[in-house]
Structures are given as C-alpha cells and as structure tokens.
C-alpha cells in the first residue's frame, strides 16, 4: 500500500468508526495494517477499486461540502458519510460501503472488541482446543 493511501486510511478510520460508550475507539494503525494484508491477499481489481474509492470519497466531500473530509467537524463528517450510504444513486452508496467493508472487518476482528460484544474468542479457542473431535 502506498504511503499516501495508508495516511488517508489512518484519517478515515475514526470517521467510519465513531466512538461509542462501552466499546474501544478505532485503532488507525491496526486498521492500516489489516487493510494492507487484506488487500495484498486479494484481487488486483479490488485493490484498485478500493484506492479509487478513497479518492472518490475525498472528491465528493470537496464537491458537496467545499472542504476536505478530514477537516470537517466529526458530526458533519458523520452526516456526510450517512448521506452517501443512504443516497438514492446506488453508485454513490457503494463508495463508503466498499471502504467500510474492510475498515469494519479490521476493527471488529479484534479479540477484545469481540469479547465485549459477547463473542469471547479466547475462551472459545481454549474450549475448542481441549475438545478436539476425532473421527
């Protein structure tokens, strides 16, 4: 992943992953690292699409809000993202949806976060290791 896109993803992570009470905030470094691995393992087409979506998102914000996405106050950035998600032109809705897919997977893939949501991965891993079904 080029440094430019890594920098953008670091900034995008907290916009997509809003802080809420009871859950840990976004870890931009973790998001970038996961994205890097995930995109490397995937298809060149998806990689290109993903980077293009970052550029399109930035351009859309400039065009509709007259400001860089990263300089918007958090509430306004959130409203902008929501407006795209619910846009009646499906192609515009796809812009945050494609980016969000990987950003959210990387965030909610964390063991600590999954445990807080009731999916205690560490405990289940231990339990499964002890069971070991034989044919």
């Amino acid at each position: 992943m080029r440094a430019y896109f890594a920098r953008r993803l670091r900034l995008l992570a907290p916009i997509f992953i809003e802080p809420v009470e009871g859950l840990p905030p976004a870890d931009p470094e973790g998001v970038v690292e996961f994205n890097r691995e995930f995109l490397r393992a995937g298809t060149p087409a998806f990689r290109l699409l993903y980077y293009a979506m970052i550029l399109v998102l930035q351009a859309l914000c400039l065009a509709t809000r007259g400001k860089s996405l990263y300089s918007l106050p958090p509430d306004e950035a959130d409203r902008f993202i929501q407006s795209l998600y619910s846009h009646r032109v499906s192609a515009l809705g796809a812009v945050p949806a494609v980016l969000g897919t990987v950003i959210y997977m990387s965030h909610y893939n964390r063991d600590d976060l999954q445990a807080l949501l009731g999916f205690d991965v560490a405990a289940m891993r231990e339990e499964a290791a002890q069971r070991g079904v034989q044919r």
């Binding site: 949806a97 969000g100 959210y104």
Partner: peptide, 12 residues
C-alpha cells in the same frame, strides 16, 4: 459489521 447498511455513528 461488514454487512450493516450504514456507517459512522449509526453503525456503531
């Protein structure tokens, strides 16, 4: 999280 049809605060 990947499947929900929103982003940002609503998603969280």
């Amino acid at each position: 999280a990947m499947t929900l049809p929103w982003g940002g605060r609503r998603h969280a």
